[in-house]
Design a binder for these strands. Structure first.
Lengths: 212, 212
DNA sequence: ATTTTTATTATTGGATACAATTATGATTTC
DNA sequence: GAAATCATAATTGTATCCAATAATAAAAAT
């Protein structure tokens, strides 16, 4: 559960529902009835609908006309697109960030890795995974690029959680992350980008194999 | 004005407001008061808020907490990010589409170009511009990729409209488009991708020079 | 006179009630 | 008995009203 320090109830609901989806409580394809959900979250339908719209934009929910909303179903084509895009965009972000990295950034990244080593919950693991990547990309200062990358990461985290490929990858991923972080600390741009690319390629391969 | 065949009023309002922004009626930075706008569109605030949220996700509107929404202000950094991403993603879409192109796709693309030659309205011009690119990318069948590319094109169309670089580019752009289309018809992948890349580079250069 | 505090107003977010749409099941028709 | 039609119920979208927040103006204190 996330802190109650949320601003609006729409945002709070967005976070809660996202957690419910990413944690697997709401399975892909499951209908999300407005009245039931709003009652479950103890809010009215108005902020709930805002939350559903936000999640639809994120790609976690599919909403159609007057028909209602359902939990999205990641398919192989979508996963392929997500990783192809990540493979193109994330190296750019990393490259742009490399010359602006501070010790604090590396420390944040390392904290996420340490926390991930001790974490067993799938959803929290995917969150820490993004925290790590975010720490390495964010110093680029390229907000629009970062926003797109964050969207892609959320969506692929969703697919990975559903496919449970995170479990399979956890140790391998940890090692790849550490090597990537070391390359960044060495300010070795070529090496860092190579390791990032390889990391994404391997993640893609594993999700392909675990997908049903 | 767009047809009244819209499904929900939220969607209709989204399209109308988008047009008002892209046509320059609502200038960047301008506050978008809910009551005033809803009155102007003869709808209640409820669907209006949905429309504003959609436009915020698109990047045309910036909405903050309880403070309200404003027309977004495209800055040079954002434009740079947009074109950097387009330069990476659109060649991929084109490459994936090349082997699936039909005569109908080429016809659609050509129709957009012909219409653009006779069009003088900035907003409609940017729409036709996207129609052309869409016709060439869509046969890839890669929906998730297309969705991201569409977002990026909307946002950069916004920036181009604001900067009025479309006017400067119209003839040059038309020529580049025709050459790109011809390369696709020839099924010359390398040539097509080269021309697309060059087209995007030139568009980026021109918007940089016209930006205030 | 300037700053701080308080009260008032304007604006946004949320809850409830109503209308429009779609899904479901009964009824009719062939 | 199957298909089509109609009525009913379930569900979503919209309007209106109320509450919470932020902006503004007035008053008080130093």
């Amino acid at each position: 559960m996330i802190s109650d320090t949320e601003k609006t109830q729409s945002e709070a609901a967005t976070d809660k529902i996202r957690t419910l989806i990413l944690s697997g409580t709401y399975r892909p394809g499951q209908p999300l009835r407005q009245e039931a959900l709003s009652g479950h979250l103890s809010i009215s339908r108005t902020p709930l609908r805002h939350a559903l719209q936000s999640l639809a934009e994120e790609g976690l929910v599919e909403a159609v006309g007057f028909k209602g909303a359902r939990v999205a179903q990641p398919d192989p084509q979508m996963v392929r697109d997500l990783f192809d895009m990540r493979l193109l965009l994330e190296p750019l972000a990393l490259k742009s960030a490399l010359e602006h990295h501070t010790k604090l950034d590396f420390a944040k990244a390392e904290m996420a890795l340490d926390a991930a080593d001790a974490e067993r919950d799938l959803y929290k693991l995917s969150q820490l995974n993004w925290e790590f990547h975010h720490a390495l990309y964010h110093p680029s200062g390229r907000r629009t690029l970062m926003r797109t990358i964050e969207h892609l990461n959320r969506a692929s985290a969703f697919a990975e959680t559903i496919a449970k490929s995170i479990v399979v990858r956890s140790e391998k991923s940890a090692a790849e992350h550490r090597e990537l972080l070391q390359a960044c600390r060495n300010a070795d741009a070529d090496d860092a980008i190579d390791r990032l690319t390889e990391h994404l390629r391997l993640a893609y391969r594993d999700i392909q194999n675990t997908e049903y």
